[in-house]
Design a protein around this nucleic acid. Structure first.
Lengths: 348, 348
DNA sequence: CTGAAAGCGCTTACAG
DNA sequence: CTGAAAGCGCTTACAG
C-alpha cells in the first residue's frame, strides 16, 4: 500500500465479489427465480432437465442460499439460545455440548450467551436472543426474578422458585441423601457440609437435602458443621471453610461438598494440614471433578451427566416446538442421580 | 385436550399474538414507518414530539426490532462463527469465553460449532456458517486440507501447514524448550515425552520442540523415550504410555507431557505403580490441568491462557473487519509462554 | 411444469 | 422534519 497524494483520492474499493444470489442462478439457468428456488429444493413438480440446469448453474456460481433471507421469509429462524453463567466452567460447556448435539441434528443453530451470573447481563442476553427471534431458549438463570418470557424457555440447573415453567435439573435432595447415607455406612456421625450459598436451586436444595439427611440419620447437627462457600463456589473459599472445620474443638470426621471445585479446595486444605484422606477425613462430593478418578484419592461423587441434562433440555424444547404438538403443561424433570464410589469416602 | 369427532375439525390454532412490527408502531404513533425507524434510532432530524410518540408506541406494544430483517436489509449480519473440536474440553470452552467476551463488546453474536475432530463435520460447519453469512470465523481446524475460505478466518491452536492465513497459537517450540530446560535444571538427563500424535500444529510442534531440546541439552535421545498418545489425547492412553516407560530396563527419571489430560493420566499411572512424584519421577506438562494447583503434587506447567488466546483471535478478526481497515497481510501471532513452577518437577 | 407478483420486516436515498 | 418508494434475498400461493 503506497500512500496516494492528497487530492488524488482514487480509493479503490476492495473488490469483494458479491455473493451470487438466487436471481443470479436463475439468470444463468434461464429460468424464473421461483423456478430456481423450487429446483434447488428438489420440488417434485420440476422437470429433470430444468432441475439439472439450475443445479449446474448454482454449482458453477458457488451459490449458497442466504439463510437470513430464508428466515425472514419463512418467519422462523433456526436459532436456539443457550444462556449460561460461564461457558468456561465445564459443567456448562458440557451441557452446551449435549444440547447442541441434539439441537443441530434437528437443523437448529445454537447462540450461546454468558451472563457471569449477573442478572443485568442475563436480561440483556435474553433480549438479544428475542431480537434474533430464537425459537427457544435454554436458560440457567442467575436472576432472582422470573424473566418476562415471550419465548419458549426451558430452565435447567437453576430453576425459578415461582415454578410453573419447564425445567430440568438433577435430583439435588436425593443426591445429597445418597452421599450422606454412604458416609453413614462408613460409620461417620460427625459429617460437615461445604456448599455454595443457598441462592439458586442447587445451593438451596443441596443444603436442605443435607440437613434432611442429618436429621434422618440422626447425625451431629451442630451449626458449625455447615459451611457456605462464596458465590462463585471457589476452591479457595472451600479451602478456607475446611480450615475452619479443622480448627473446631471437635472437627468432623467426614465432609460432603456440593460442588467439584469445593471438593478440590477442601482436599487441598486437608493435605496442607497434613491429613490423609480418607483415613483422617473422608470426603464425598455432589459434582464429580472433571478428572475425579485421577486425583488422589479418587473422589467418590455422583456421576457426571451434564451432556445428558443438555440432551433432555433440548429434547423438551424440540418437543414443544414440534409443529402440531399439542400445547402441554410445563414439565419439571428431575434427572435421577447415581453414586460413583471411588476412594475418598473410605472404600477400598 | 379432548379429541374432536372427525368431521368436526374445528382446529383452533394456538393464538400466538403476532409480534409487533415497525409498521404496528408507526400506525399507533400515526407516522410513516420510515419516520418510526428514524425515531427509534434517535436520528437527529426527528422532532422531539414525534420521537416521544414513537418511543411510547414502541414501549406500549413491547416492540423489539427484528434483527434478522435488519441484517437482510443492511447486508451484514452480527454473527461470528467459532469452530472447535469439542466445546466440552476446557481449553476450547475457555477460548470461546475469551473470544465471545471481545466479540460481544463490539455487538457481535457468536455461533459455536463442534466438529468432534471430523473433517467432514468441520466442512459442514463451515458451510452452515457461510450460509448464515457470518462476518468472520475463528477456527481450530481438524482437517488436513485448507478449507476454501470465502469468509475472513482466523485460525487458532491448530494451523494449516500451508500457511498464508491469519493465525494465533501458543509458542509450542519455546514452551517445550522451557519445560525441558527446567527438568534439566533439576539434573535430569533421561527425560521422556508423552504427547499427542503429530497430526496437527500442537502435536507436531511440541514433539519437534521436545526433540530439539533433547538435542540442545544433549539428553538421552533414545526412541523409547518418546511416547505418542491416542488422537483424543486421552488420559488412559497416557497412563498406558507411562506404564511402558516404567517397564523399560532403564526408565526415564522425568517426563514431559504435551497436554493436561496426558499429565493426569501419567500421574495416575505413576501412583498405581507405587512411585512418588516428584522424587521417583518428575513431571511437567505443557497444558496446565484445570486445577493443576490442587492435585497432588501440584503440576509444574505453562500458564493457562486460553481466554487470552480467544481475545487475541477475536481482536485480529475485528481489526480486519473494521470499516476502512486497510487490507493487510495475514498475521501469524504466537503467544509467549510462561512457566508456572509448582511441585511435580521437584521444586519445593 | 413454469412464471409473475407479493411480501417477510426492516432502512435509506430521494423528494418535499 | 416527514413520507412514499424501492429493495435486501428469498418463497409460495396464484395463474396459466
Amino acid at each position: 500500500m503506497t500512500a496516494l497524494p492528497p487530492g488524488d483520492a482514487e480509493v479503490v474499493p476492495p473488490v469483494l465479489p458479491r455473493r451470487p444470489t438466487l436471481v443470479d442462478v436463475a439468470r444463468l439457468a434461464r429460468v424464473a427465480p421461483s423456478t430456481a428456488s423450487r429446483a434447488l429444493k428438489e420440488s417434485p413438480r420440476i422437470s429433470a432437465t430444468t432441475r439439472d440446469r439450475v443445479l449446474a448453474a448454482a454449482r458453477g456460481l458457488g451459490y449458497q442460499p442466504n439463510r437470513i433471507a430464508q428466515s425472514l421469509k419463512a418467519q422462523i429462524t433456526p436459532f436456539v439460545g443457550i444462556v449460561v453463567p460461564d461457558i468456561g466452567i465445564s459443567f456448562y460447556s458440557r451441557f452446551v455440548k449435549g444440547a447442541q448435539d441434539t439441537l443441530e441434528r434437528s437443523g437448529h443453530q445454537v447462540l450461546v450467551m454468558n451472563t457471569e451470573r449477573e442478572a443485568a447481563r442475563e436480561s440483556a442476553a435474553l433480549r438479544t436472543l428475542e431480537e434474533h427471534r430464537v425459537r427457544g431458549i435454554l436458560l440457567a438463570t442467575s436472576s432472582p426474578v422470573l424473566p418476562d418470557l415471550r419465548i419458549l424457555t426451558v430452565f435447567f440447573d437453576s430453576i425459578p422458585a415461582q415454578g410453573g415453567v419447564s425445567s430440568v435439573a438433577r435430583a439435588n435432595g436425593a443426591g445429597m441423601a445418597l452421599l450422606v447415607e454412604h458416609l453413614v455406612s462408613h460409620g461417620h456421625r460427625r459429617v460437615a457440609y461445604i456448599g455454595g450459598p443457598p441462592t439458586f436451586t442447587s445451593g438451596v436444595e443441596r443444603l436442605s437435602g443435607f440437613r434432611d439427611a442429618v436429621t434422618r440419620f440422626e447425625l451431629d447437627a451442630r451449626h458449625a458443621y455447615v459451611e457456605i462457600a462464596d458465590s462463585s463456589w471457589s476452591a479457595a473459599s472451600a479451602a478456607a471453610a475446611m480450615e475452619r472445620l479443622l480448627a473446631l474443638a471437635e472437627p468432623p470426621t467426614a465432609v460432603v461438598t456440593s460442588g467439584d471445585t469445593l471438593a478440590l479446595g477442601a482436599m487441598s486444605a486437608c493435605r496442607a494440614a497434613g491429613l490423609k484422606l480418607p483415613d483422617d477425613m473422608a470426603l464425598v462430593s455432589f459434582d464429580d471433578p472433571v478428572f475425579g478418578d485421577l486425583v488422589e484419592p479418587p473422589v467418590t461423587a455422583l456421576v457426571r451427566d451434564e451432556a445428558e441434562l443438555g440432551r433432555i433440555a433440548a429434547t423438551m424444547l424440540l418437543d414443544a416446538l414440534a409443529p402440531g404438538a399439542p400445547p402441554r403443561e410445563p414439565a419439571q424433570v428431575r434427572l435421577p442421580v447415581e453414586l460413583v464410589v471411588r476412594r475418598s469416602c473410605g472404600c477400598a
